[in-house]
């Protein structure tokens, strides 16, 4: 499914994608297309891409082909989703303790739309950290 999401093939493209977008949030999924977690995430991303196209744009980056950001963003999870707005990384309080990224696959599209919307609205009001409507800390409770 990730064939329908725009791939960024080098560091320059990633930079430009983040820099060039003035009015929308930029969402980047770092990972591998063949990774099961990424596949599930991409499925969700693909579902919602058109719904959020007015306020967000979604890209996917292969962290083996483009290792430029692995160190800076600490991309060691199989699948990492990060949010940017006007060349600024937007942190999201997901309740997981890691506010920098979503490092699991989300299957509920609406939940993800809600997060994107909070990111977009918060970032537009100058916030660097927004709180996701849902608390995902319970995800790891067994």
């Amino acid at each position: 499914m990730s064939y329908m999401l725009t791939h960024l093939n080098n560091g320059w493209q990633v930079d430009q994608a983040i820099l060039a977008e003035e009015d929308r949030a930029v969402i980047i999924r770092f990972g591998h297309d063949w990774d099961p977690t990424c596949m599930r995430m991409d499925e969700t991303l693909y579902k919602i891409a058109t719904k959020v196209k007015n306020f967000a744009v979604i890209y996917v980056v292969d962290i083996s082909k483009v290792p430029d950001f692995n160190k800076m963003y600490e991309l060691y999870d199989p699948c990492t989703v990060m949010f940017f707005f006007r060349n600024k990384h937007i942190m999201v309080d997901l309740g997981t303790g890691n506010n920098n990224k979503i490092n699991w696959a989300m299957s509920d599209g609406q939940e993800f739309i809600d997060i994107i919307e909070t990111v977009y609205r918060g970032a537009r009001k100058g916030r660097g950290l927004v709180v996701s409507p849902k608390d995902y800390s319970t995800k790891y409770k067994y």
């Binding site: 609406q110 709180v131 608390d135």
Partner: peptide, 20 residues
């Protein structure tokens, strides 16, 4: 929750209504 958005109920404490 937002009316008509189809999302589930979320704890109000986490929602920053000012943003909207």
């Amino acid at each position: 929750r937002k009316v008509g958005s189809g999302s589930s109920f979320n704890p109000a404490a986490r929602i920053d209504f000012d943003l909207y």
